[in-house]
Design a protein around this nucleic acid. Sequence first.
RNA 1: GGAGGAUUAGCUCAGCGGGAGAGCGCCUGCCUUACAAGCAGGAUGUCACAAGUUCAAUCCUUGUAUCCUCCA
Length: 884
Amino acid sequence: MKAVELSKSYNPKDFEERIYSYWKENGEFKPRNIEKDGHFSVVMPPPNVTGVLHMGHALNNVLQDIIVRYHRMTGVPTLWVPGTDHAGIATQNVVERQLKADGLRRQDLGREKFLERTWLVKEKHHAIIKSQLEKMGCSCDWDHERFTMDEGLSKAVRECFVTLYERGLIYKGKYLVNYCPKCGTALSDDEVEYESEPGKLYHIRYPYSDGSGYIIVATTRPETMFGDSAVAVHPEDERYKSVVGKTLDLPLTDRKIKIIADSFVSREFGTGMVKITPAHDPNDFECGRRNNLEQINILNPDGTLNENVPEKYRGLSAVDARALVVKDLEDAGFVEKIEDHNHDVGHCYRCHTIIEPYLSDQWFVRMKSLAEKAMDALKKNDIVFYPKRWENTYSRWLEGIRDWCISRQLWWGHRIPVWYCKDCGAEIVMREDPTECPHCHSHSLEQDSDVLDTWFSSWLWPFSTLGWPEESEDLKKFFPTSALVSAYDIIFFWISRMIMSSEEFLDKAPFKDIVITGLVRDKLGRKMSKSLGNGVDPLLIIDSYGADSLKFTLCYMAAQGQDVLIDNDSFKMGSRFANKIWNATRFLLMNLEGRELVNFNVSDLTTMDKWIYSRFNSAAEEIKKAMEGYRFNDAASAVYSFFWNDLCDWYIEDTKQKLLSGTEDEKNLQISILMDLLEKSMRLMHPFLSFITEEIYQKLPNHNGDVIVASYPEPDKAMEFKEDAEKVEALKDIVKNIRSVRSNLQIAPEKKIKVVLRTSSSFKALDLVKSEKAFISTLIGSKDFIIDEDSSYDTSSSLPTSGPGYECFLFIRDAIDVEEEIKKLNSDIEKANKLLEGAEKKLNNEAFIKNAKAEAVEKEKKKKSEALEIIEKSKEHIKMLQSL
RNA sequence: GGAGGAUUAGCUCAGCGGGAGAGCGCCUGCCUUACAAGCAGGAUGUCACAAGUUCAAUCCUUGUAUCCUCCA
């Protein structure tokens, strides 16, 4: 057989792109064995088509890719559905910003032209996102790719809206939106920029209607008092318990309002009494809903005061009205005091006008019944959160659920499927676009101008992407999906709502396992943002270190939903590991020269061989357990320490000599075992380092097809080899012990020394030490390594050292600093004494013997005897040194 | 105000009832027939503080302190 050449260093650019195309062309991402029972399916949280993918997306998709690849290799029919989200507001903003650069507004283009332009932006960003996902190596099935506004999903949205409407779960109502009086449009919360500004806190007297004095409320916006419907206090505020329910005269008006109790009031703010203006403050709005208060809108759409205020203030702007109101209140003696006060004021992100909370007509979904079903899903264990603590967050939010405002005053999105008859005023909601009014047969119909909230399409994602409302084959085979991987910041927006819609329309939870990841932050724990300039671009990481380095590093750091703190250098870790894999492979493939692969079975294996198979088996077991609990970092460490610390550092080192000096048959057997281990390792590591394992796998003489669809190594009881594994650990202990002594004495590596090993009857690895004599000699740098079985060798004038069941004598007289060595031995004795003390304390404790697990007792006994052995030998060794 | 999280080696973090761990960094020595992106060895910790439960607590419970996040 010829050697297989590998380039001298790991260079992911040589193969990552090629391998991705290869997988794609061979249809490796498509579900296989679909005739088989069971399935594993994942829907990708759809990235917004506004931007490019950041490190958070990388983390999310890398973890999905790991679980998808892992399950695909177990042989179940596996599907990963990719897709993107139209992201209404965000995308519309991108286009509007472009227009603004040309001095245009969206109204200047008109709805149709504007949308054409938005689709172009969508196409552009979609292409970028797709190519990024491909670069990361995501093994999603592109034939199943969806977009929230494509035909099928739009149909799902329509079906959903109409059905909910028919079930009486959708209604039109008043809602407070962020409103820019200058732009004449509602803004989303994201579009409001808050700044801390100096202002005043006005303390105003509101007299009791019965003339028994007055109370004082504190407000930053006195002009809104015309919209007041109540004054609220905290229900447990001792100062005001007795006044709840009393009536007040609202100054400057002839209206009367009541004092109510509501726990949202802060007792510390101002006087602890707050005026409630439901139509002009978000908190007051919610409070008003809870307490059934009147909503009095005092503003015109242009931001001036309307007919609901006394005549003299009508038509004034909020700022002008405030000045006049304060003056009038002062003149009438209603002002207690005015203080300086800083507060956050919202501004329009476009024109920087102060935004007004504005009461307007919006569409809502009635959430209570939906939320109850979603809570039941958790109670019935149909869904499980990883980590579990998020279940509380989820439940609590559902308990306090509020109706969902689903209309947006935008153009980009799913148009609300409601038509109004201009003649009879009927509200028409149908699955197909109506051509005439079903009531008066008028053709004069007008569609609602608003669009639906983006989440109204994404909450259907797990089943709309599989074909719902059609009863598609995909839906039958792959729904409900198996796992959802998402960050915790969208549990409310998205995850909960998907569960609600799925329970409502399909009577099932949309997924079983909910894997909550942390957020990716910089090394200082700050969110990555453009303005801070602390972002780490996944593409740049791929460019400098490769996609596998990105993936492995993120996986290694993604512990149990904890935030992941990284900088550019963090990814060196993955890169070093990939390089290690590359080079170990290069070495092994070089050794194929002139060899023949042979079949072998367990009886051909040496103790060392059994040890490495045993390590491999433990790794497979650890990974299996870790993957079942979505503990990605544990899986990554198992992969890492097996390949590097066990396979490379010990096993391959051991085989080097055998490959050089054995007989032809021995060499053939050895390389065959190594190839077997390498082949298995590639399969074991593939979910975590996908590209490099495929590239290597294809070059192995014993490979079988593509690793991406090869079978995943299962833990196997027959490969545990416990006794052999323990023997090798004993051998390692001897080597480490001697190496440590050498290093401490600064004995140059090239200086070969004589070493005598003496073992006690409790030492079980004597046969192994004998058969691995050559290997040990190399590792400890000895030209003369003697196994002194009958303790007859003269060890005087040597340096002794000991471990469990053995003593070593190093003949390095010149190097020994007797005093230093005695000091070391004394400190060994001290440590052993502490151990002994601890063990004896426990063993002498009757309660311990009685209550503790048998293993724990055994362990303490072993500890004790080992400590005694160390003490005894060390004392002996001190005597030896003293007689030198 | 409510809730959750964090507090372990210089840094970033795992571990979570029975002898304190990883990666990076640091120190020492090595280009040993894959890998200097490497090898070998080494140092460093009142596991935040205080009580409690337990035969046994870094790990469980409660409280305190500091920091972070979300909700209001």
